[in-house]
Design a protein around this nucleic acid. Sequence first.
DNA 1: ATAATTATGTGACAATAATCACGACAATCT
DNA 2: AGATTGTCGTGATTATTGTCACATAATTAT
Lengths: 215, 215
Amino acid sequence: MNYKNHVTRLSQYKSVLQRLVKSGIEKTYAESISKHIGIPATQIRKDFSLFGIRGNKRGGYNVLELLEELKVNLGLNRDLPFILIGYGNLGKALARYHGFHEGCVRIIAAFDPKVGVLSSIPPIPVYPPASISAFLKDNPVKHAVLAVPDDVAQSMVDELYAEGIRGFINFSAIALNIPEDAYVNNVDLELELETVVYYTKEAENKEDKEVKKLV
Amino acid sequence: MNYKNHVTRLSQYKSVLQRLVKSGIEKTYAESISKHIGIPATQIRKDFSLFGIRGNKRGGYNVLELLEELKVNLGLNRDLPFILIGYGNLGKALARYHGFHEGCVRIIAAFDPKVGVLSSIPPIPVYPPASISAFLKDNPVKHAVLAVPDDVAQSMVDELYAEGIRGFINFSAIALNIPEDAYVNNVDLELELETVVYYTKEAENKEDKEVKKLV
DNA sequence: ATAATTATGTGACAATAATCACGACAATCT
DNA sequence: AGATTGTCGTGATTATTGTCACATAATTAT
Ligand SMILES: NC(=O)c1ccc[n+]([C@@H]2O[C@H](COP(=O)([O-])OP(=O)(O)OC[C@H]3O[C@@H](n4cnc5c(N)ncnc54)[C@H](O)[C@@H]3O)[C@@H](O)[C@H]2O)c1
Ligand SMILES: NC(=O)c1ccc[n+]([C@@H]2O[C@H](COP(=O)([O-])OP(=O)(O)OC[C@H]3O[C@@H](n4cnc5c(N)ncnc54)[C@H](O)[C@@H]3O)[C@@H](O)[C@H]2O)c1
């Protein structure tokens, strides 16, 4: 199966652990985490091993401790403000999402030219893009979510990089050029829908083949 | 680097090709596709080779033909209606996104209990969940986007599977159980933001190391 | 005490994926 | 026509990733 990569998996583990904490569970096991997310227990242990996370022989893992170690390894054990560029369809959805507040990630402000003046009506304040520079001088943010139209994405990255942003989540479909010391995560939602079509077709074909075999 | 997998890449190639078509470009080369998305040209050729896509020796690829072949291989050369379950923050964003209409993927209806009666005001009609079954009897849809709260996701999958849906895009954070002949693509947006934090930290550390080396 | 049980942790192995090196061959040039 | 160039296509090679088997430690049972 496709478990993506070790960092993604670490984040998935963290997500499960957060839910365990919420339900008041104190101890867990590789095997039971596996049941939650469908990643083999041995893979989970291997990942932990890789990151130097250790449990108790025969005793599994203390939920709170494990969660803390996962956070440390992911760099999520600190305040993590994000800014949001583009308060359109997708930007609004992200801004209004309350799940983030339970995690470590917080969107603290959005920027969109549609807003003439600064406004604090939505869950987060929305400012005109011209004020990004000033905002970042007061708020040491390192991460930005780009939910702007494809054709302005690159120029926004350039500007944001110049202002000190080093981590980007890019929802536009175009590839962005950035310096070595920054990181972009491209999230292409259209692609996410399309690949499902492929794999669904695959499943169909497999069935066909099996049917053929039986004949 | 992390180019995800061959299917994802195929979809990326398709996306570039669509843009080339729009700009009226007729011929392209592995090397120029590479420039657009940052995937090495040899990887691109290897992928094409794997899927039996062939170009012209020294002549590159005919854009329209290549696009068509990519679509065929991805299973996107046909009508691909999706239904959307959950018309909340994220559901609305997806429903209102116009990029889909230019591609092959179309969301034709949404279902949400907040709508008491059927309504056609938004870009797509939104119906109460009780009418899913009836709707699918009239419309042979195979794919669904799940943008519902975490705690109802599994029960919706069960219901949708029973009604014939075989491909799912799941935006909730919990893993879904499905039969072998169906496919779920989990898209966890919180995780997408979090992993950026990790990689940004990595870049920082790398810098630190280099600084150390110089000292 | 000793044995049995149940997890963890990790090195060895297997599978998968990416890169490289180079041959084939069509187009263009001389 | 023959040489040259540019691009493709792919087998061989290397790197990455996942799986497995089993040694190890803690706990429980006898
Ligand atoms: N909405 C979706 O479901 C969806 C799906 C796939 C991809 N995407 C991609 O996500 C991105 C955003 O999509 P959307 O649907 O939210 O688009 P949208 O048009 O609704 O929103 C874009 C927003 O960006 C703002 N904007 C424009 N220039 C700006 C600038 N320089 N600085 C700050 N803000 C600026 C616009 O005013 C607008 O509000 C696009 O690249 C789109 O291709 C969206
Ligand atoms: N919005 C985001 O940015 C974001 C980010 C990360 C994850 N998510 C995840 O995406 C999912 C949706 O998030 P959201 O922000 O859109 O939530 P939301 O609460 O705004 O929307 C959920 C919608 O689902 C509807 N719903 C409830 N039960 C239903 C049912 N049985 N059938 C059909 N519809 C039903 C609700 O009426 C609501 O409109 C959640 O699982 C959330 O964790 C969202």
